[in-house]
Every structure is written in structure tokens, then in C-alpha cells.
Design a protein around this nucleic acid. Structure first.
Length: 992
RNA sequence: GGGCCCAUAGCUUAGGUUGGCUGGAGCACCCGGCUGAUAACCGGGAGGUCGUCGGUUCAAAUCCGACUGGGCCCA
């Protein structure tokens, strides 16, 4: 019967996965299961939309694993997932830049010449080019999402929902146009958000110049203010100089008799050898003094070119005088507005100087630095010229140096809802928890207005039209647009720029003709609108509930400034509630030496290739076993090792069970058993403890502790339960016990499969099918369609503690054997344990002692009072003592009879090895002939029958003469003894 | 310059909220053992100033402060 065992060993992770994927595909398990039961309670979730034209990287895998683990758990609990849609972030610079590159476009002018419609069409087509890669990745990772009904931020219904939200903000005064200093990319010809800027700081070298600003010589000695700047190109836009009222300034006479003015604190930096200070004065005494600007290009205007006071001036670096160019800095703009001096911006939209500054007309802003500095030098105004290494922002997409400039933009007035942002964030369960008040919470308290508009083409158009009288009309739906617009709307309507730019509106206030503000909006706004816009809220009835936050989201930590933030801003401004109840953040993925992964460095792991080689579960396990909240060092071999240890061991345990079950002709996993044997009760209790640990950790949205519990359970299963149960599985003596062992193991594996289904969906499915005898047949039979088990077995903590104590004694016993120098194969008469067993071990009784005895290969275990230590003298006994208290003792020598038995074991082991070498399977019958002399013969002869049984030998002969050498014959020598034997396969005989 | 997080053996880490006996474990290394699922397992060896300094305490990896280094974010 046993010869029916066919597959030897466990299938590889990839083989398991392929088998499961084929089953899922054939029976459409994901399609039927992924949304959860239609009538279940709702679990709200939204997939953060990845940029739809960029391929996934390893960082994406981590967040996806976290998301999928949670969603699987909630589905098993009977929740309906709202929503299980995949999503795509379709708009924005990333896509536009790709198209520009492909068609050699370098500016707005080029794009317009190319044709905005053509350009947007190209963007649209490119947008979903990589969708199939994402889909494949999700499939291999086991991340179930509804890709067939993915939401796309470029779809008209989605855009209409975004418009609805913009109008809602507009109506309550939270969407306004303003003139403000923003980071600006001259190549992309658009302003950027602070989020985008943050991604592009590099170190660079800039000029560091100190320039003389001569004070108007009312009388007496010429005096120059010293002004320091790292952006000489802003000097033509200078309108004022700022000083600080309370700061002390020094007038220093130089060798040529001229005088320069600078903050006293700056004197040592500029005159390390000492200075001839002729006067000291407070900053306020300089207020109102007029000076001659370095370049008088803007022409005279009232109030310009004088010293003003402001507290933003510091003396930590520079000279204590700051040149104010209101178009190029936030403080500059503020001071300029206060002093009513207007602005002068000599740059065009590409950052080139206009004719307003003839000296550098046509030059790019940075390129003008050198020319301007030379000019200052030739006019004797350059006091000092150096260069400075510092970090400066560059465009994260095209790597051009950015500039800060004042410009018109539409703003979401987030600064007015700071209190709501902070308050609602306080109710969010963050993982890691410190983000709530730390990293994210801090950022909220300083929330600045959100510069929403972009001078770009491929994005959600800002739905605001302005009439000649300056009234703004914000359109909140296509119906409203149709009602106000001329000409009539095309059908179907694609609400992107080309279409809406052609429309004029009747002004909502005065009825005059209104033209659209020619902006698109920040694509991060699109993403933040996903929870409602994916359902076309409020236009279609859908499951979106304006009062309900998402229950759960998870993304990489880069989203703290991105999606996590825009979700919160929209939830607070539109619905006055938090955006999500829990938010799990994964850390950065580093390579094995701790460096950031990047394509250019060539150390990036390619996710698809990794998934293909290791399988989805190994990758999932690799991330779950790490502390994903910290920067993670990830390598394929590292993941393989970690996953092999737990998942590989588990697969082998399953294969072992299947082989035994088949050999015994057993059916699928039974219902919950109540076995009498201690080992079985222990295993089931450990199973329940593991299930509960997974449940606890998934309830708190942090799977790490659950994964740790699974690792410990698999370890216990493999190294204690199976190890101690082996004899039970093939024992002939107690068929009832054998059946109980099979049943317990089958139940434990099946139960474990359900409990780990959220963590490792492929392995779990494979076990559920194989052990449960479901044969990959129906979708309903999937482990992912099974309910989450609320209890798998009775937890018996006392049994677990007792077993722990017992296993502690096993370790002590092994150490004693080692010290006695008696191999485990040679039985010893007894293990002596001093003192009484603990309160948990004591009730386990004979059964526990039996486990101890068999594990240590001793005939019996005896308990004696510690006081009888002296009955076990050191010459005859090895004794373990702890802190002077005896723990256990073992005889140093086996008895002669036991020694013989040990020898027989040595022979048996070598013949078993031989069975394997000649390619026999468990169950194949053999014929054996042994030739041995002396002690070996004396050991084997009386144990022939037992040996024959053990080796599955039909015949076992002890022969007198030496065996004729041949390929079937082997000879072994150990401990100075030798024997030879012939092992051949027995002729087949009819099965009984 | 500001905020948050991290630091335990060559590497990966448990423990830290609740201070307490010799700080556990895995990988890798050396010696030995076991093995009819296993890249498994077991014993022994070597390897730790628990980042540094200071404080609280009878007692600190653990609590507090400063510093150093790393990471992320902001300016």
C-alpha cells in the first residue's frame, strides 16, 4: 500500500504558486472573492493610484503586501470591500515630460506648435502603457484588485467629481487666486508644489558676492551698504534694501577713505585682521536712507531704492543688509507689498531675461550671473566675489535649476483649516504611531496654502472662467457647463484643455463673457479626490458615504507629503472629517549594503524578475518578517533565506503529511479533533495561540507580530511535533494513536492555512486544497472564500508552559549526553531529574516523561529530591547544576546490553542510508544479507526480526562466510568494527 | 538651523511600555552529534564596552538628559 507514494519531497515555492494561479484563473477565485460578500458590513479602502506611466519598483511591493494582507483578512471576516478598484494617476508632469522627450519638444511654444490636442492625445495613449506590467506584478504578488474596473483620474466622470469638489471649495472661499512666490521650473514653464520641490534638492556651486550699494551722498564721505547675495541675477529686480531695527551696524573706514556699512556681527567675517570702525548705529537709524541700485533698470518709481526695516533679516550669514527683489522671494514680496513699491520681474516664462535688462537680454537667469558680476566689477561695485557650495532645488522631473518667483496662482487655503487638519489627524491610528504627532502632525501645523494651478496641458483643467469685470465663475458639473457655455458642448465631452479652452461662459455674476483661467491643477489633487471621485460622487449613487472615513490605507512614506496629505485636506475641507481611520506607512527600500536603490546606480531590484524567481509568498514573507517601518535592506538572497526557513519548512511538513496520509490511505482533513495525546493537545493549543496572535496583529493593522508567531509555530511544528511524532505515523502497535496523529496534523495544517491565508495566499491555498482534499476544484472551495476562524482549538496555556519546561529538560539532557560522550543512538538506562516538576509540567504525567525519555533515548526518567545529589557521584554520573542546585544527571556509561542495542542501531542506520542510495522509496521491500563478526554479530543476531521490520525486509539473513563483492554489496567500518551487507529490492509481490 | 525615527555579536534581530538572576535567537565560522519531510534539527566553541558620556536607583540594554552616527522630513 505504501508504494503508492508518488511525489517525494515538497514542491518548490514557484511550483506551488503556478498550481494555485492556474486554479484561481480556471475558477475565477479572485473575481468572485475580491469584493467580499455583497451584503457584508463595509470596510472602506482606497488603492492609492500609482503614476500610470511609470513601472513599479520594489518599494511598491512592500505597501501592496501590507494592503493585501489587511484586505484578505477583512474579506474572510465577511466585510465588503469599498472599494476593491485599482486606480491610475493619469495626469501630470511625469506623463507630459515623457511625451515631450519622445517628440523633441522643449517648451510651451514647441508644444503649442505641435498642437495641444495632439499632445494630450499622446499623453492619454501613453498613460496606460505600463498597466499590464502592474497587473502582472499584482497577480504574481497575490495582490487582488479589480483591474477591470480601475478608476482613472483622466476619465470624464472622475474629472466631473473633481470639479464638483473644486466648486465646493470655491463656494466656501477656500479656493482663491493670489499672487505669491512659488517654486518655478523654467523648462516646464510651470510652478510646482512644495512636495515636488522636496524631491529635487542637490548640492551645487553658486556665486557668493558682496556688492556695494552706495548711499545717496547727502553730504560728506561716500558710504556704501554691503549687501550679500548668492543670486546675482536677482539684482536687476532689486527695489529695496532691508535692515533689522535693533541690530547694531558698524561704519568701517577703508584704506582708500571710503566707508562701508555692515552689521557689527559681520565685521570679524569681513575684516578678520581688524577694522577701523568709525561709527556704530542701530538699524533703525538707517531707515529711509536712499541708495543707488546696482542696476537701475526698472526706472525710478516712488518709494524704491531705500532702506527699510524688517525682522526677517539675520546676521548669521551675510552683512545684515538684504537686497529685496519682490518678484523673487516670499519675504521680498511681503516687504514690497507693505512698502508699496510694486514688483519688477525681468524674466519671461522660460526664465530668460527680457529687453527690460538690455545687458543680459535673452540670457537664461543663471547664465546671467557671470555677466552681471563682471559688470559690477567694472563699475567698482563688486566688494567681494566667492563661490558657495550649498543645496539648491532642481526640478524633480527634468533636473533644471528652479527659481522662486512671484506669480498668479490659484490656492487652496489650507492655512485656514489648519485646526481641522490637526484635530482630525489626531483620531488616525498611524503605523508607526509616532507619525501622528511627529513627522505628519508637525507638518500639518505649518500647512501653507496649496498652490493648485499649473501652467500645463495634460491635467484636470481648472474649471474657473473669468469675465472682463474680473468675476470668477467656478463650474461644478458638466450640466452647469452645458448651461452656461458657448458654443454647445461636444458629445461625448472630453473635459480636457483643448475642449474647455474653446468654451466661453456667461459670467455667473454679471452675465458678461468669461474666459477660462488657462491652468490645469496639481495631479496630487486628483489623487486626493480618489475616495469619492472613483464613484463619480455626487452624480451617481454609489457606496461612497461623505460621513465615513476610509478604514484603512497603506503606502510608502513618501506619501506623507503626497497622498496622505491631499486625502486629509480634501476630507477636512469638503466633509469636515478625517480621511482615514488607520494609515500604515512603509519605509524606504535599500539595497543590501544600505544604499538607496536607483536605476542609475544599477542596484535596483526588478520586482517582476524577483517575483518570478522567488514567488509571491516568499517576497511577501520577506517584507512581513522585516521591520517595514524602518529603512529596509533588501536582497533577493536575503528574502529567499528568510522565506525558506519558514515557508520552505512548512511546505516540507505538508509534503511529509501528504505522503504519510497517502501511504495510510487517509482522506481529507477531518473536523476538529479532540485527541487524547499530549503532543496533539499541545499542537492544537499552539495552533490556536498562533491564530489569535495573527488576529491581534491584523486588528491593529500591523502584521509583524502575526508573522513572528507563524515563524515560531512552524518551528515548533517541524522541530518538536513532527520529530516526536514520527514513530506514531508509521507505528504498527497503536493504530488508534496513529489515526489521531494523522488527524491532528491534518487539522493543524488546514487550520494554519486559514489563519495564514491573509499573509501568504499561495501557500495557504495550496495547503487548504491538498490537505483538505479539495483538488483545486471549485472557487467556493478556496481558502480565500473561507470565513476567518474565530477559534481553531481550545487554548491550553498550561499545557504549553508544561511543554516548554519539558523541552528545557531535553536541552539539559542533550548537554549531559554530549558531556558523557555517549551518542544519542546508544540508549542509556535513566535520566535523573532533581526536584519536583513545575505546576504545569506535573499534571502532564507519564506522557510527558515518555516524550523526554524517547527524545533523549533513555529507558526511564526518574525524579529524585535534590538532597539526594550525593547518590550520583561524579565518576559514574554527569550532573548538571545551576547555581549550585542539581538539575539532572545521566550515567556516564551504557550497560552492555544497551551498548549492543546501540551497535544494532548503527547497523540499521547504515542500511537505511543504503536503501536511499540505491534509489528505493519509502515502502519498497528489500532482501538483505549481512556478514558480521564479534560484537556486531552479537548485537544483530538477537534483533534480526526487529531489524527486518524496520528495513521493510522480506528476508534478512545473517551469513557466515564473507559476501561475494559486487555492486549490491557494501562494507562499513565504525568504532573499529566492520560489517558488510547486500541490499537488493525484493521481487514485487501481490499487495494484500 | 528645526522636527521625527533608528542604533543590541561580522550580518539579521528578540527583549525596552512594566528596571531585577549568567542579554536570547537565526545566518555565517570551528568541533561534535542526529536525520526513512526539510537548504531541517541538536550540543559545544568563538564572537557583545546593548553607539558615547552623564543622571535617577540598592539595581539600567530598559527610565531621564546631552552628545555622536545613520535615515526621513522641513527651513
Amino acid at each position: 500500500m505504501a508504494s503508492e507514494a508518488e511525489e517525494v519531497g515538497a514542491p518548490s515555492a514557484v511550483a506551488v504558486q503556478e498550481r494555485v494561479l492556474a486554479y484561481w484563473q480556471r475558477t475565477d477565485v479572485p473575481g468572485r472573492t475580491l469584493a467580499g460578500p455583497a451584503d457584508g458590513p463595509v470596510f472602506r479602502f482606497t488603492e492609492g493610484p500609482p503614476t500610470a506611466n511609470g513601472p513599479p519598483h520594489v518599494g511598491h511591493l512592500v505597501a501592496r503586501v501590507l494592503k493585501d494582507v489587511q484586505l484578505r483578512y477583512r474579506r474572510m471576516q465577511g466585510f465588503r470591500i469599498v472599494s476593491s478598484m485599482a486606480g491610475w494617476d493619469c495626469h501630470g508632469l511625469a506623463v507630459e515630460l515623457e511625451i515631450e522627450k519622445r517628440h523633441g519638444l522643449r517648451s510651451h511654444h514647441d508644444i503649442e506648435a505641435f498642437g495641444v490636442e495632439r499632445f494630450c492625445d499622446a499623453c492619454r495613449e501613453d498613460t496606460l502603457r505600463v498597466a499590464s506590467v502592474w497587473r502582472t506584478m499584482s497577480r504574481r504578488l497575490g495582490y487582488w484588485l479589480d483591474y477591470d474596473r480601475a478608476y482613472r483620474t483622466m476619465d470624464p466622470p472622475y474629472i466631473e467629481s473633481v470639479w464638483w469638489s473644486l466648486k465646493t471649495l470655491f463656494d466656501c472661499g477656500l479656493l482663491e487666486k493670489d499672487h505669491y512666490v512659488l517654486p518655478y521650473c523654467p523648462r516646464c514653464e510651470t510652478s510646482l508644489s512644495s512636495h515636488e520641490v522636496a524631491q529635487g534638492y542637490h548640492e551645487t556651486t553658486d556665486p557668493s558676492v558682496t556688492v556695494r550699494f552706495p548711499l545717496d551722498p547727502a553730504s560728506g564721505t561716500p558710504r556704501d551698504l554691503l549687501v550679500w547675495t548668492t543670486t546675482p541675477w536677482t539684482l536687476p529686480a532689486n527695489l529695496l534694501v532691508a535692515a533689522r531695527a535693533e541690530t547694531e551696524y558698524a561704519v568701517v573706514r577703508e584704506a582708500d577713505g571710503r566707508e562701508v556699512v555692515l552689521a557689527s556681527a559681520a565685521v570679524p567675517r569681513y575684516f578678520p585682521a581688524g577694522a577701523d570702525v568709525v561709527a556704530r548705529l542701530a538699524g533703525r537709524e538707517l531707515a529711509g536712507r536712499a541708495y543707488r541700485p546696482p542696476f537701475d533698470t526698472p526706472g525710478p518709481a516712488p518709494g524704491r531704492y531705500r532702506v527699510v526695516l524688517d525682522d526677517f533679516v539675520t546676521v548669521a550669514e551675510g552683512t545684515g543688509f538684504v537686497h529685496v527683489a519682490p518678484s523673487f522671494g516670499p519675504d521680498d514680496l511681503r516687504i514690497g507689498a507693505r512698502e508699496r513699491v510694486g514688483v519688477f520681474d525681468p524674466l519671461d516664462s522660460r526664465g530668460h531675461f527680457t529687453d527690460g535688462v538690455p545687458l543680459v537680454a535673452g540670457k537664461a537667469f543663471k547664465a546671467a550671473d557671470a555677466v552681471l558680476v563682471r559688470e559690477l566689477e567694472s563699475r567698482g561695485l563688486l566688494y567681494r566675489s566667492e563661490s558657495l557650495r550649498h543645496v539648491y532645488p532642481f526640478c524633480w522631473r527634468c533636473d533644471s535649476a528652479l527659481l522662486y518667483r512671484a506669480m498668479d496662482s490659484w490656492f487652496v487655503r489650507t492655512s485656514r483649516v489648519t485646526e481641522g487638519l490637526v484635530r482630525h489627524n489626531r483620531s488616525v491610528a498611524w503605523v508607526p504611531s509616532s507619525y501622528r504627532d511627529g513627522r505628519f502632525g508637525n507638518f500639518l501645523t505649518e500647512a501653507k496654502d496649496w498652490a493648485l494651478s499649473r501652467n500645463r496641458y495634460w491635467g484636470t483643467p481648472l474649471p474657473i472662467w473669468i469675465c472682463a469685470a474680473g468675476h470668477a465663475t467656478c463650474v461644478g458639473s458638466f450640466a452647469e457647463l452645458a448651461e452656461r457655455a458657448t458654443p454647445p458642448l461636444p458629445d461625448p465631452l472630453d473635459p480636457h484643455r483643448v475642449t474647455v479652452d474653446r468654451l466661453t461662459l456667461r459670467c455667473g455674476t454679471c452675465g458678461l463673457e468669461a474666459r477660462r483661467e488657462p491652468y490645469t491643477i496639481d495631479a496630487w489633487y486628483d489623487a486626493g479626490a480618489a475616495p469619492f471621485a472613483q464613484y463619480h460622487y455626487p452624480f451617481d449613487p454609489g457606496p461612497f458615504d461623505p460621513a465615513a472615513p476610509l478604514d484603512y490605507i497603506a503606502e510608502g512614506l513618501d506619501q506623507t507629503r503626497g497622498w496622505f496629505y491631499t486625502l486629509l485636506v480634501l476630507a477636512v475641507t469638503l466633509f469636515d472629517r478625517p480621511a482615514y481611520r488607520s494609515c500604515v506607512t512603509s519605509g524606504l527600500v535599500l539595497d543590501e549594503s544600505g544604499r538607496k536603490m536607483s536605476k542609475s546606480r544599477g542596484n535596483a531590484l526588478e520586482p517582476l524578475a524577483m517575483l518570478e524567481r522567488l514567488g509571491g509568498d516568499a517576497s511577501r514573507w520577506g517584507f512581513l518578517a522585516l521591520d517595514f517601518t524602518e529603512p529596509m535592506r533588501v536582497s533577493e538572497t536575503g528574502i529567499e533565506k528568510v522565506a525558506g526557513r519558514t515557508l520552505g519548512t512548512l511546505r516540507h511538513a505538508v509534503a511529509f503529511h501528504l505522503e504519510n496520509a497517502r501511504a495510510d490511505g487517509l482522506g481529507p482533513a477531518p473536523d476538529r479533533p479532540s485527541p487524547p495525546a499530549l503532543l496533539d493537545r499541545w499542537l492544537l493549543s499552539r495552533l490556536e495561540g498562533t491564530r489569535a496572535a495573527i488576529e491581534r496583529s491584523l486588528e491593529s493593522f500591523d502584521p509583524r507580530d502575526g508573522a513572528t508567531a507563524v515563524r515560531a509555530f512552524v518551528d515548533d511544528l517541524s522541530t518538536w511535533y513532527l520529530r516526536r511524532s514520527r514513530a506514531r505515523f508509521w507505528g504498527e502497535t497503536d493504530p488508534a494513536d496513529r489515526r489521531q496523529a494523522h488527524a491532528t496534523l491534518a487539522y493543524a495544517l488546514g487550520g494554519l492555512a486559514r489563519a495564514i491565508a491573509p499573509l501568504v495566499p499561495f501557500t495557504a491555498e495550496w495547503i487548504h486544497q491538498e490537505v483538505g482534499g479539495r483538488e483545486f476544484a471549485t472557487a467556493d472551495g478556496s481558502v480565500h472564500a473561507a470565513p476567518w476562524p474565530s477559534e481553531l482549538a481550545r487554548r491550553d496555556v498550561s499545557v504549553e508552559r508544561g511543554m516548554d519546561e519539558l523541552r528545557g529538560l531535553v536541552e539539559v539532557g542533550r548537554e549531559l549526553r554530549q558531556r558523557a560522550g555517549v551518542k544519542a543512538r546508544v540508549p542509556l538506562l535513566e535520566l535523573v531529574v532533581f526536584g519536583d516538576p513545575g505546576p504545569d509540567l506535573a499534571p502532564l504525567g507519564e506522557e510527558a516523561t515518555g516524550l523526554l525519555a524517547s527524545e533523549l533515548n533513555v529507558r526511564r526518567v526518574v525524579r529524585v529530591p535534590a538532597a539526594r545529589r550525593e547518590q550520583y557521584p561524579d565518576p559514574d554520573w554527569v550532573v548538571r547544576e545551576e547555581h549550585g542546585v542539581p538539575v539532572a544527571a545521566l550515567p556516564r556509561r551504557p550497560t552492555d546490553e544497551l551498548l549492543e542495542e546501540g551497535l544494532a542501531r548503527e547497523v540499521a542506520r547504515r542500511l537505511q542510508q543504503r536503501r536511499k542510495e540505491i534509489g528505493l522509496r519509502y515502502g519498497d521491500r528489500v532482501r538483505v544479507a549481512i556478514h558480521a563478526d564479534g560484537p556486531l554479530r552479537r548485537a544483530v543476531a538477537p534483533r534480526r526480526e526487529a531489524l527486518a521490520r524496520e528495513l521493510l525486509a522480506d528476508a534478512l539473513d545473517l551469513v557466515d562466510g564473507p559476501l561475494v563483492p559486487g555492486p549490491d554489496v557494501g562494507t562499513w567500518t565504525f568504532e573499529g568494527l566492520s560489517f558488510s551487507a547486500r541490499v537488493v529490492r525484493a521481487p514485487d509481490r501481490p499487495r494484500g
